[in-house]
Simulated scan of single mutants.
Amino acid sequence: MKISPSKLTLGTAQLGLPYGITNTLGLPSQESALNILNHAKKSGITTFDTAPAYGEAETRLGQWIHNFGSMEKDQPIIITKLPKFENNRNSSAANFVEKTIDQSLKTLKLQQIPLLLAHRAEDILNPAIYDSIISSKENGKIYSFGASVYDVDIAFELIEKTDISALQIPFSVADQRFVKSGLTSKARSKKITIFARSAFLQGVLLLSDTQIPEFLQELRIPVRMLNEIAAFNELSCANILLRSVAHHSEITSCVIGVESIVQLNTHITSYKKGPLPVHLSAEIFNLFNDISYETQNPGRWPKM
């Protein structure tokens, strides 16, 4: 089964904890978070991505959902995550999956989770976890499931060996691995929904070249050139970067994270400008052709 997400999905990590190395506003207040969620829905965003690992995000999202009432047509599409399974900390895979899903249902104030993603994609290849997820789907606790992936080879293995209906992948001009490998094309041919995250690489691609940390120095020259191209075309870098991902033919929905309604409006306005001209899209993707995996993956960055 598939869900039908909006073309923009609101990521809620920034609503639950101070997220990203470029975050300057910190954790928004409860009122600000609810206002952002309301504004997103009024603007046509129907899909919201969260996780137990995102601090207060699930709790705030649950409060917001509760405020809706129970009218089915108003119910948003909620994506949450199955945390990483740790053998030494959890009694059994089956109990871990069941308890995690039950807790998320309670926190989110939902009867059913529309889409559950494994936060560590490899966990779905664990037969005990996979079987427990299938059972949760059969008993109606989840509607569909998939994985949040970092590794292309793992994504291919999931497509071949499991019945996933969605993948969430990192995708930006600086990280084109999943598209270039043919993974997104193969997934789409199997009707697997593709969510793209990290369009701004945690905001690093929106910095000036002089602001980029030393450990990401290989981004400095392409980012400087990106800024020059944006200025020449009288566009912002945020506009170019978002449109290059959100309007990509192999992406179902682009996950955006915001700290304020102003940021949200900026992204929505950018998206509504439509796809980039083909020559401009090719030009900016070519700038970042040779970026290393250590730079592409925030999980490899030094702890700030």
Rank of each mutant, 00 (worst) to 15 (best):
S185N: 15
S185L: 14
K186T: 14
K186H: 11
A187M: 03
R188Q: 10
S189D: 15
K190H: 14
K191P: 05
K191F: 14
T193E: 13
T193G: 06
T193W: 12
A196D: 12
S198H: 12
S198D: 08
Q202Y: 09
G203F: 03
G203T: 05
L205N: 06
L206D: 04
S208T: 15
T210I: 13
T210C: 14
T210E: 14
Q211G: 10
Q211I: 12
I212V: 05
I212Y: 08
E214Q: 12
E214H: 11
F215G: 09
R220N: 14
P222F: 06
V223G: 12
R224H: 14
R224C: 15
R224Q: 15
M225T: 15
N227D: 13
N227E: 12
I229E: 07
A231C: 06
A231K: 11
A238M: 02
N239R: 01
L242I: 03
R243P: 00
R243M: 00
S244C: 05
V245L: 04
A246P: 04
I251N: 05
T252H: 09
C254T: 12
C254S: 11
G257L: 05
V262F: 13
Q263R: 06
L264P: 02
L264Q: 03
T266A: 06
H267G: 04
H267V: 04
I268Q: 01
T269G: 00
S270P: 00
S270C: 03
K272H: 08
G274K: 04
L276H: 00
L276G: 01
P277G: 05
V278N: 02
L280K: 02
S281Y: 01
E283D: 05
E283H: 05
I284S: 00
I284F: 00
I284A: 01
I284P: 03
F285W: 04
N286K: 09
L287I: 04
L287C: 02
N289Y: 07
N289T: 08
D290T: 13
D290H: 12
D290P: 07
Y293W: 08
E294M: 10
T295V: 11
T295K: 07
Q296N: 03
